[in-house]
């Protein structure tokens, strides 16, 4: 059990620090790599939450494909460092920061306030990947079939938008 706790604290600290880096860094490639580190940390958390299949998918799709797409776009548009971190014009920075903080407080009050009591404590190793797959293909069949339309739209949209040369 000690391993799970250590893994949790390592992954959560890296994910928060990496998320901060994503926001604060001026060079887009470095913030993309910071987002990559945050995705890895969340994948590690998925493993402690007994979802290894989702951890592998997170790494395969998010870290392996979406972030590659981001880095391709950054290299394609050859973006340099931003001149300044938070643009002064528009709504003052402190107000925006306060709004973000207000979101955080709004979220964390209900979480901390309710004492979560669950009927059964989580049984480790209760569910395996094949349970997930069976659930996917009988109870959630409709969303599964709709995703193919979503992918078709994404493909066609990407081609139409990018080939408008």
């Amino acid at each position: 059990m000690a391993l799970e706790v250590i893994l949790f604290w390592i992954c959560s600290v890296t994910s928060v620090v990496a998320a901060l880096f994503v926001i604060l860094h001026r060079n887009p490639i470095l913030s993309a790599l910071a987002l990559l580190a945050s995705l890895f940390a969340v994948a590690g958390l998925f493993i402690t939450l007994q979802a290894p299949f989702l951890a592998a998918i997170q790494i395969l799709i998010y870290a392996g494909a979406v972030m590659v797409l981001f880095i391709f776009v950054i290299m394609l548009l050859n973006l340099q460092k931003d001149p300044e971190r938070f643009a002064p014009q528009g709504v003052p920075v402190t107000l925006r920061f306060a709004l973000g903080l207000w979101v955080f407080i709004g979220l964390s009050i209900p979480i901390l306030w309710t004492a979560f009591t669950w009927a059964m404590p989580p049984t480790p190793g209760a569910y395996s990947v094949s349970h997930l797959a069976e659930l996917l293909f009988d109870q959630y069949l409709l969303p599964f079939e709709l995703t193919s339309f979503l992918l078709l739209v994404a493909m066609v949209g990407g081609v139409v938008l990018a080939k408008k040369s």
Partner: peptide
């Protein structure tokens, strides 16, 4: 003995691209 062996191999294999890109 990773229970999702093939998926693990594919996921880690897809990270080789970052060495080239960076």
């Amino acid at each position: 003995d990773i229970h999702i062996g093939i998926l693990y191999v594919l996921a880690v294999g897809s990270l080789g691209i970052y060495g080239v890109l960076i």
